[in-house]
């Protein structure tokens, strides 16, 4: 038996109470009421079907799919004594044997990042550099994949707006390339972090508390398998940046995923939603298998990274800079 610290137990009970208090109203919302509200204020709730075999072969004829994903690994301890390795992969369903990889690294200790002592908040700055680096190579492999394979559609892992914010120039290049060549560009978001519906609920006075409720909380279990909500341009900030989005339940799991598409390609929104539905295992977590496959290929194990660092970094550098006390812990 474990010895339970009484205070810890108390705290957890208290946490439960706090959360219950906050969410009581949401949890007690009637499903139909909420659906009606969404129909009225957010967008139409639609049932879609999987693509037929002919439609799929049409996609193949037009160049297949390009899946894009990235991964990062971190070795070391707290700021600034760490190094992060990024890898991005673009893989075409048709040319699966020619994956396009790009890698990059970042460490606050590197000379190019040095003169930041005068910055107000080095940690925040640091965070943004890291995201930028990863986004940048993801966009780069996507761009190369688009140029080399001319796919019918590109599926990025994650929201498209991220690239718009984090590496604007390269993103514009990709966007223009796709629009010009009529290549559909979408992003599939496993963890949606928006709060469009909650915001509107509060604004319309349907909720008494003025707290932040995320869409994933509200949409959990609300949609049936294969249902989508097209978010009307008026209610999302993304529209201003040139994106159209939807929510969908793509598997039997009750959670909901999101999908972005270029505004200029809005006409393909439903077709792409159907494609995502087709490629997602019914009993899965809701992520298209192709994204999972790309994700799996791009991932580097921590052991491999450690091995590489141990082989190619001077022992002195590795020990002094990147081995934290934590790593040496054995207990």
């Amino acid at each position: 038996m474990y010895n339970v610290n009484e205070e810890l137990k108390e705290k957890i009970i208290n946490l439960n109470k706090l959360l219950l208090d906050k969410y009581r109203e949401i949890f007690s919302l009637d499903g139909t009421t909420l659906r009606n509200f969404i129909q009225r204020e957010i967008g139409e709730v639609k049932k879609i079907n999987r693509l037929s075999q002919e439609e799929l072969s049409h996609i193949t004829k037009k160049g297949g799919l390009l899946g894009v994903d990235g991964s990062n690994n971190r070795v070391g301890g707290a700021y600034p004594h760490f190094v992060e390795i990024y890898q991005a992969l673009a893989k075409s369903t048709i040319h699966a044997n020619e994956p396009i990889y790009k890698t990059d690294f970042y460490s606050p200790l590197c000379p190019e990042n040095e003169n930041r002592d005068n910055l107000e908040n080095p940690l925040e700055e640091d965070q943004s550099i890291r995201s930028k680096k990863l986004s940048a190579i993801e966009v780069e492999v996507a761009l190369e994949g688009v140029r080399r394979f001319k796919p019918y559609a590109v599926i990025m892992d994650g929201s498209l707006i991220r690239y718009d914010i984090e590496c604007y120039d390269r993103w514009q290049e990709l966007r223009e390339e796709c629009e010009e060549k009529n290549i559909i560009l979408i992003g599939v978001i496993k963890d949606i972090k928006t709060y469009i519906i909650g915001d509107l609920l509060v604004k319309n006075g349907l909720l008494s508390k003025r707290e932040l409720f995320y869409d994933r909380e509200l949409l959990y279990g609300l949609l049936e398998y294969g249902e989508i909500i097209e978010i009307s341009a008026g209610v999302t900030k993304k529209a201003q940046e040139g994106f159209a989005s939807l929510f969908m339940r793509s598997s039997k799991a009750p959670s909901v995923i999101g999908m972005d598409i270029l505004d200029s390609q809005r006409e393909y929104l439903e077709e792409m939603a159907r494609l995502v539905l087709t490629l997602t295992p019914q009993d899965g977590r809701g992520v298209p298998l192709w994204i999972d496959i790309v994700d799996r290929e791009v991932r580097i194990t921590d052991q491999l990274i450690r091995g590489l660092l141990e082989s190619y970094l001077d022992r002195e550098i590795l020990e002094k800079l990147f081995i934290s006390e934590r790593d040496k812990r054995t207990l």
Binding site: S92, G284, R285
Partner: peptide
């Protein structure tokens, strides 16, 4: 966990990738 069902595998095959 999830099991890639045959319809998904066939769909992937249809767009050019044989798992």
């Amino acid at each position: 966990g999830e099991l890639a069902d045959s319809s998904v595998i066939n769909s992937l095959k249809a767009i050019g990738y044989n798992i």
